[in-house]
Simulated assay, not measured.
Amino acid sequence: MTSEIDLYVGKRLRRRRRLLGLTQQSLAEQVGIRFQQIQKYECGANRVSAARLFELSEALSVPIQYFYEGLSSHDPLFHDPDPDVIAPDVLSKKETMDLVRAYYSMGEAPRKHLLDLAKSLEANTKPNLRLVST
């Protein structure tokens, strides 16, 4: 039975893997398992053992606590979301990672212009959104 914590750990795993530009296959090879197992971890179908979590944290260059950051009984994951908060899992989406990579591949001046444009568009759509820190 999948728990909310298993889902949360899986989302954090996927987010970090994508941020580093790794495929499920390449991460699986680093820790000596099949890519299907990474898929199961990321969707929360399988629990990640303590030993495997250690191996994944090493492969992804994060401390083990990274997978639990922001997770508590007071976390929005366990409650109705605040309408003014962007869900933390937005960072695990491929589109978001593509946008971040494209943004940082630009020079400083184009990045500033793009950020100014995004802020002006945001002001016209849904003001006062904030990202839940994780």
Rank of each mutant, 00 (worst) to 15 (best):
T2N: 09
E4S: 15
E4M: 15
I5Q: 14
D6H: 14
D6V: 05
L7V: 08
V9R: 01
V9H: 01
G10C: 05
G10S: 04
G10Q: 01
K11W: 09
K11E: 11
K11N: 13
R12E: 00
L13P: 04
L13M: 06
R14N: 04
R17E: 01
R18D: 00
R18Q: 08
R18C: 02
L19D: 13
L19I: 13
G21T: 08
L22T: 06
Q24W: 07
Q24L: 00
S26V: 13
L27Q: 03
A28P: 00
E29N: 11
E29R: 11
Q30A: 14
I33K: 01
I33W: 04
R34C: 09
F35D: 05
Q37N: 04
I38E: 01
Q39S: 09
Q39R: 06
Q39L: 07
Q39P: 02
K40T: 09
E42Y: 02
C43Y: 03
G44P: 00
V48A: 01
V48F: 00
V48P: 00
A51N: 11
A51Y: 04
A51K: 13
R52H: 07
F54A: 12
L56T: 06
S57Q: 07
S57A: 15
A59Y: 08
V62S: 04
P63I: 03
I64W: 05
I64L: 09
Q65M: 09
Q65H: 11
Y66V: 02
Y66H: 07
F67N: 03
F67E: 03
Y68F: 12
Y68A: 08
G70S: 10
L71K: 03
S72Q: 06
H74K: 14
D75V: 00
D75S: 14
D75P: 01
P76R: 06
P76G: 02
P76L: 11
L77H: 05
L77P: 03
F78A: 08
F78W: 08
D82T: 07
D82S: 05
P83C: 05
V85N: 04
I86G: 03
A87S: 13
P88S: 10
P88D: 08
L91Y: 13
S92T: 09
S92P: 02
S92E: 10
K93A: 05
K94F: 06
E95L: 12
M97F: 09
M97Y: 12
D98G: 04
L99Q: 10
V100I: 15
V100H: 13
V100L: 15
V100K: 10
A102N: 08
A102S: 09
Y103T: 07
S105R: 15
E108W: 03
P110H: 00
R111L: 01
K112H: 01
D116Y: 03
S120T: 13
L121Q: 14
A123G: 14
N124C: 10
K126E: 00
P127M: 15
N128S: 04
N128D: 06
L129D: 11
L131F: 15
S133W: 11
S133F: 10
S133A: 11
S133E: 11
S133H: 12
